[in-house]
Design a protein around this nucleic acid. Structure first.
Length: 472
DNA sequence: ATGTTC
């Protein structure tokens, strides 16, 4: 793959047939994927062949190999040019994302309570593959209410407060969810998982604000040095996974009908305006709302723990997804166009002044939440004006080892002890689960964030360090 | 990521 370094932290893959647009990779040279074990740059080029794609096929600094599209990829298609939507451009974990809560508590005040808080969070957070959830939905009708209403419905049912919704992307729910496009099997998988963490890289962490880069913006976000926070990273569980599976299959079957050819069958797609495109977007929106409700009720469970064990509250800083496609308006070549923006392992990063931000955040921009690898720290960023890639930035550290490689790499090591040796309390997680998530399996999140900022995608606001982690 | 291979 030929890369042209066209600016600091910016490489170009020149357009060649059948690409419709170039590829653009935002990264330092050191962060570029290793071609030997990772074909994500070929995937960037493959995505550039999609009908209706505009600008470029973009990759964030944490890019790595994924299903069809790279994880860390951003691609926008023009609705007026028969642009397509592709489930592979969203990923299996639809609306997987991050929620950050800030405690009215300083790190020093938590010291004596940490074990009790961690034990209580562990008990209050259903996790791992399979069942167990905070919220027992009454019936299918209530699941449909979750699919339509997301965090708004959760709050309506007592899981949180009205102010929470101002601090959620889309005020807690996306429009146009269509539960009728969610298969019976997806419904069955989703019925008993609202309020569950899942496994893999999903976690609930107690963290502390270690460093503030912009005091004014941090204060507007509700963050101060030394403050205790809770970060939750999870998604739409089996429901989102099943929806992705179902709609990839449906699109594979109809692509010839639309005359669409793609270089990888995992790029299955259909025009946004087609019945299959609309069906996917309706089901995807339902899964997005499910994921938001999931994070809302997990956060509420964490709040109850903090109230009981410390007497302190947890205020929502923000909740944002990093696996989603959205219909958005952007300026392209001097004209405003309606685009289907796919962000897969990429986070929306609205700049200051954006009309979709609530009043108190509009002057400073959207909080962007970046979880690091386990035990290494996380970042809070904000959007910047005039950024490339349709107001998007990175989503995390990004894998450099496959799960299999990571499992092999810990032979002869004790992963739990190595995390605890960093003064981080660990609750839950199998040996293999920890092995797959060890820092060595990931890029350095600090380098990823430096590259994202250097490329003009976002700006650093604060860095958080882990105190305790609850894992599946 | 995932009732970790319909």
């Amino acid at each position: 793959m030929d890369l042209v370094e066209e600016a600091p932290y910016r490489f170009r893959i020149d357009r060649h047939d059948p690409m419709r647009v170039p590829g653009v990779v935002f990264a330092s040279r050191a962060l570029l994927p290793d071609a030997a074990g990772d074909q994500s740059l070929e995937q960037v080029a493959n995505v550039a062949t999609l009908p209706g794609i505009v600008g470029a096929s973009y990759a964030m600094p944490d890019v790595h190999w994924g299903y069809g599209f790279p994880i860390g990829g951003v691609a926008a298609t023009d609705l007026a040019e028969d642009g397509v939507v592709s489930p592979g451009g969203v990923g299996f974990d639809i609306s997987c994302g991050v929620r950050l809560l800030a405690a009215d508590l300083d790190r020093a005040e938590l010291v004596g309570h940490l074990d009790a808080v961690m034990d209580a969070l562990s008990a209050a957070t259903p996790r791992g593959v399979g069942r167990g959830a905070v919220w027992q939905l009454a019936d299918r009708a209530e699941l449909d209410a979750v699919l339509r209403g997301g965090s708004r419905y959760a709050v309506e049912r007592g899981h949180g407060n009205a102010r929470d919704l101002d601090r959620c992307e889309d005020y807690g729910a996306v429009d146009d969810a269509d539960p009728a496009q969610v298969s019976e099997r997806a419904v069955q998988r989703g019925q008993q998982q609202v309020g569950s963490l899942g496994s893999g890289n999903h976690f609930l962490e107690v963290q502390a604000v270690e460093e503030v880069y912009d005091a004014q913006v941090a204060a507007a976000f509700g963050l101060r040095p030394g403050q205790v926070c809770v970060m939750i990273h999870c998604g739409s569980r089996g429901l989102g996974h099943q929806i992705c599976t179902d709609h990839v299959r449906a699109m594979e079957q109809v692509m010839p009908r639309y005359g669409i050819e793609v270089p990888d069958r995992q790029l299955a797609c259909a025009p946004v305006s087609s019945p299959q495109g609309r069906a996917y977007l309706g089901a995807m929106a339902a899964a997005a709302n499910y994921a938001r409700a999931n994070r809302q009720v997990l956060a509420e469970a964490a709040r109850r723990v903090f109230a009981t064990r410390t007497g302190r509250s947890l205020d929502l800083v923000y909740d944002v997804s990093h696996n989603l496609a959205k219909i958005e308006q952007h300026r392209v070549d001097g004209a405003t166009r309606r685009l289907c923006v796919h962000r897969k392992g990429a986070t929306r990063a609205l700049p200051p002044g954006h009309s979709d931000l609530p009043d108190d955040l509009r002057p400073v921009g959207q909080p962007v939440l970046i979880p690091g690898s386990m035990g290494t720290g996380s970042y809070v960023l904000t959007g910047v004006p005039g950024a490339p890639a349709f107001a998007s930035t990175c989503h995390g550290a990004g894998r450099v080892q496959s799960r299999r490689q990571a499992t092999k790499a810990v032979r002869g090591h004790d992963p739990r002890r190595e995390i605890e040796a960093r003064d981080i309390a660990v609750r839950g997680a199998s040996r293999r689960g920890l092995a797959e998530e060890m820092p060595a399996a990931y890029k350095d999140v600090a380098a990823v964030v430096e590259a994202a900022e250097g490329a003009g995608l976002c700006r650093r606001v604060a860095r958080l360090v882990p105190i305790g982690v609850v894992k599946g």
